[in-house]
Nucleic acid binder design. Sequence first.
DNA 1: GCAATAGTCAAACGACCGTTTGATCCGGAT
DNA 2: ATCCGGATCAAACGGTCGTTTGACTATTGC
Lengths: 221, 221
Amino acid sequence: MADNLPADTATRILDAAEALFAEHGFDGASMRMITSQAGVNLAAVNYHFGSKEGLFQEVFHRRLAELNKQRLACLDALEAESAGAAPKPSRVLEAFFGPALEMAADTARGGATFMRLLGRTYTEPAEFIRKFMAVEYAEVVERYTRALYAALPDVPKAEIVWRLHFMMGAVSYAFSGIDALALVTGRFDDDPALLKPRLTAFLLGGLRAPLPDGPEGKSGP
Amino acid sequence: MADNLPADTATRILDAAEALFAEHGFDGASMRMITSQAGVNLAAVNYHFGSKEGLFQEVFHRRLAELNKQRLACLDALEAESAGAAPKPSRVLEAFFGPALEMAADTARGGATFMRLLGRTYTEPAEFIRKFMAVEYAEVVERYTRALYAALPDVPKAEIVWRLHFMMGAVSYAFSGIDALALVTGRFDDDPALLKPRLTAFLLGGLRAPLPDGPEGKSGP
DNA sequence: GCAATAGTCAAACGACCGTTTGATCCGGAT
DNA sequence: ATCCGGATCAAACGGTCGTTTGACTATTGC
């Protein structure tokens, strides 16, 4: 059951917890499952992370800190490149979802596992989870909503917030990837590398869709 | 803790379970929480539903059977109306997501609660859940994918399946509605009745988006 | 060489889990 | 009046949960 690479005890716990939380959820993955898969003593989790909740938070912080740092760097580069002018919506979307999609494609270092976990965690309303997710995402969401406001001046801001909401739903669902559909339609045999262009095309179409009530309002270029 | 309306014992259990599963998940909602909220004896669940899993399945079957019956009826009506010709994509989408959105707006009779539960359950990979979800959805998905193939002859079938996948993600995420975003951007003060036009506009934009790789392919009218 | 510290370990803690049991109640058929 | 089956009930079952304890080991600083 132990990992191939011994590594640090805390790291082995984080890796095992990431995989088991993704598969069974927070309540469904027990401390004994986690520690035995990590090949460490049961008490090690409480020693290194204080509690099961502390472990859960650290599993997320380890990945999200890196992911959101990349997202901010991408946006910085994009804004520097188009000095002063508003970047195109497609570029903003790519800056936001690109790093996540790359992480989702990284099956070797556990990125894919984490994105599955992230996808299913978005829909879990446990309070301690919502709390630290809000903290972890605060800066990124703030910067990107402002970038989208500038990129889509014709679309009302409230509409943009909603659509960002919808987009994150589509993405996290694509990650959690349990394929409720695939169970019915038969498994996709497609190359998973095709997910990125397909998803971004879909998201961009939704982001720039005509406004609901009013006339056949146009939107981005 | 007991409900206002005494009603049938089995029904009271189903109502309480629906709410508690939505809030805490399958593992997080215990039998004792459910039965005490329903105001019934602990053993009543096993007597009426056999097991906790049986209860969970029945919570879903009660709502999904009705929901999918409506969806099939909507599609029947749509196909009868446009005799022979392929219905417009927007009409197909409305037939599919309309009943779900109406149920989500029904806060009085618990429909909204169930749709939150449904949203978070899509991302839970527990095997017994995936099994009966596949059974429950089989006919509806089969009929609607065929309808979308006909409605969007220019879009490759694989692409349509993917996009249906993305759309269900956006919708279920909108339902689970814990508003990971709202935590950061501040709560939406908007009328929840505006969700339907906003969501359908977004979905239609995504469904008819230009294809990813090839030329600037057009799609539906 | 020795004290101090960080890490690991087996074992146990009380609490809660889903399920089962057997007694008890009750309305309708015999 | 009696029996019967469905429904409800308090109580208990064996297990598993997250966490804590206290002893033991290895490493560090002086």
